[in-house]
Design a protein around this nucleic acid. Structure first.
Lengths: 257, 257
DNA sequence: CTTTGCAAAGAGGTTTGTCCACTGTGGCGC
DNA sequence: GCGCCACAGTGGACAAACCTCTTTGCAAAG
């Protein structure tokens, strides 16, 4: 039994589960763990860190909840590859807990996406422009099926965020957009054909402004688009007001302290 | 074998740990769990959900990592009270994994905080103005101690974000600012006295624009302040160490153990 | 030689059982 | 009446299993 483990003493001063997170963080900072890599097996990690396997699992579970790692049953625990992504569940929980309104969400989207559109107009690469253009055409092609339209709507805004060239901004846009999508997919059918046509046209104008490298126009068109979308949805909500909506027990959300 | 027994229905069907998260989510959506409340004890939750206690712990650990709940040893697990907060660790891990640059971080801050400053100029309440003003005076009072100056710097920007009246925007600002603070507190001492004086003056101008309800000026002064801060820090970095960012041995991916 | 099928190894997922550390509170002694 | 302390309840951690899924490689069939 080879003893003399490197970390044996500070078990009590700090939580063991934070040791796991710190250990993984150390591996990342040291460059020994990059996107796409597989982490050591839980049983091996338990030996390395000097804690039990359930503790390792607790730490990995926390990292998975943060989106840092991703466990695949039977295969291993990996660091997600591809563009950086921030989980949207925390924001979703916050929305449920604090009762964020639709207007607040659209306002946050406006701030983020207007900025992203401005950056995209400055530095979008040709591949980004191609992706954006494709989604614009997809929007026009699916105006008759709101549920599919919504998917391309999301992809358009994601593409613009990517084109901003700033991964932090792109991640934030993605996070807030996910919240919008989550709320929207249930009510997408309410959208009128005219609204969808207006929306598609608005997206086209945003694309053209970005393509023309017109920063101010890109910001202005994106701002207008989101303001109009917010207004449309408010109208829909007004139209479909009273006792009609939720299929089951998800209806009442009143606070009863 | 009779399959659908109402009495005996274990959790074989789907991931047990997601059941825990879904259960808590259900409690929140149903309004039975609001900020400040205490969750049932782990042993009780295990009975309610129908899984074992370690599974409950795994779910709660994930929720804690998302910032949804907060466990206090010996007391219980609570839903955090106060303003909504998004954890900053996920963003910190993303920064370490994908090598976010300081410029990208300042750019994200600029987009968010310029928007927040504009909203604050529109609708800041008197209490918000008072907090902002106090931090401005604190900045001028602590120009000789950079580490303390940094604290009030953070508090000023947090106060502006709060004054925006949009909790989503405030949370996002907080998250990105935390990343800045984490990187900054180690190098705060490098700041020159002149830079701190300029920074304090910039904050004062932002405050005055917000107080005057001048939306455009609030946005412009905040934008300028963050651009200048970014430039200052770039100078500091150049002066201190010509090149020191990437981990030297980030190449080896093979486990050589 | 290629393709298909399956079994074994290895990975994460879950459970049961036990003990430890901390917190809050109420009762006991002073 | 006041302060100290023990107790019950809570989260934290460890251990030893067992299960399910994925991967992989080898053998049998074509």
């Amino acid at each position: 039994m080879p003893t003399a483990l490197p970390n044996r003493m500070p078990k009590q001063t700090e939580g063991s589960t934070e040791q796991v997170i710190a250990h993984v963080r150390g591996l990342i900072d040291r460059g020994q763990l990059t996107p796409g890599d597989r982490l050591p097996a839980e049983r091996d990690l338990a030996v390395q860190v000097g804690v039990s396997r359930p503790t390792i699992r607790a730490g990995l579970r926390a990292l998975a909840a943060m989106g840092v790692v991703q466990s695949r049953h039977g295969s291993g625990t990996y660091i997600p590859d591809g563009p950086p992504v921030l989980g949207s569940e925390p924001l979703s929980f916050l929305a449920a807990l604090h009762g964020f309104t639709r207007d607040e969400m659209y306002e946050a989207r406006r701030i983020l996406e207007v900025g992203a559109a401005g950056l995209a107009a400055e530095r979008a690469l040709s591949e980004h422009l191609a992706t954006i253009a494709e989604e614009v055409s997809n929007l026009f092609a699916t105006m008759d099926t709101p549920s599919v339209f919504l998917i391309h709507d999301i992809r358009f805004h994601r593409a613009v965020a990517q084109a901003s060239g700033n991964p932090i901004v792109a991640s934030l846009v993605e996070m807030v957009s996910a919240l919008y999508y989550e709320q929207r997919r249930d009510t997408a059918e309410r959208a009128s054909g005219r609204d969808l046509r207006d929306a598609a046209e608005a997206h086209r104008q945003i694309y053209q402004a970005i393509r023309a490298r017109d920063v101010e126009k890109a910001r202005a068109t994106m701002n207008l688009h989101l303001l109009q979308s917010s207004a449309y949805q408010a109208q829909e909500a007004d139209a479909a007001t009273p006792a009609r909506t939720e299929p089951s027990h998800a209806a009442r959300k009143r606070k009863a302290r």
